[in-house]
Amino acid sequence: MEILISTAIGFLVACGIYLMLRARTMDVVIGLTLLSYAVNLFLFASGRLTSNAAALISPDAVVYADPLPQALVLTAIVIGFGMTAFLVVLAIRAFGDLGNDHVDGEAGK
């Protein structure tokens, strides 16, 4: 199972980076979103993955899921949203001001 999880995370990273290397701002935004999914999953996995573990404190729980990476990832998700939003608006502003959506502000550099 580990091998599939690692592959999935690595694949998401590859997809994200490929898109971030594209020349259009929207592609970069999408790529960054993919990359942040991958990073969040990686952080989450660093606490080890257990299914059917207790997430809440209860007297009959045997195994608990590691809460610390979860807390970190939770804020990371929200911050990631803030960052994506900022980037999107930046892209719109650049498009409005420059008249094109190339990442360098002009095509053909």
Binding site: E2, S6, I9, G10, F11, V13, I17, A45
Partner: peptide, 18 residues
Amino acid sequence: LAGGAGIGVAGLTWAVLT
């Protein structure tokens, strides 16, 4: 480049998980 990075992260995740 993307593939290299992906393989690197996959390897890292694998190492962490095991």
